[in-house]
Amino acid sequence: MNDEIIFFIDGVQVTGRPGQTIIEAADEAGVYIPRLCHYPGIEAWGSCRVCTVAANGRPCSACTQPITTGLVVENDTETLREYRKSIIEMLFVEGNHFCMFCEKSGDCELQALAYRMGITAPRYPYLWPEREVDASHPDVIIDRNRCILCARCVRVSRDVDGKAVFQFVERGPEKKLTVNAEARLKDTDLDVTDEALDVCPVGALLKKRVGYAVPVGERMYDQEPIGSDIESNTDAAPAAATEVEA
């Protein structure tokens, strides 16, 4: 019986456990792989592709790919960094992201990834899609201008809150978040205490009357880049600590 799986990320030996995905084992080892749709503890989704790594030379999503003994994973390479950067830039032009007044600014994972990658402006033309806002619920607002279709709220409402308030309709560029009711959010059984409201990576699902509480400079990603918490993971497996500069 062997409950250790030894594999490699960017040439560094990492020890994981059977059943873990690449991203789970990497997190424990203090190696940050950028991600958006992934959320710890819920069903893996694999839709945003920000976590794309090369596993034994083949591109795959680190949040869905299980680890195997001897697997050779490339993570922080020029090519992969470029792929991820272009995904983030596409997300910015494909929605309507007005960071300057967004309540989530400073705490937004999409923005934080762009900061970490040093993006100063996207290289693609802005699409300015028409997206609906639903402010019907007394305590919660959906601003679809900012929704990146990560399905975190869909999964958490279904599997954690046991309500299935959210779902997607349509496909491709028409795909959008909708609610499980005849009409609007107020017609669902969503409650302001639902955990689904705490997992949105962007400012698409917001609680009313609590915005802008934290001053600029003290928000989640004001000082430290996203992923810093994982990279400073001191429980890192001993092998990961032997990293040598390439």
Partner: peptide, 11 residues
Amino acid sequence: TMGGIPALRNT
């Protein structure tokens, strides 16, 4: 860089 507040009219 992205249109800013004036670009709110773009939709």
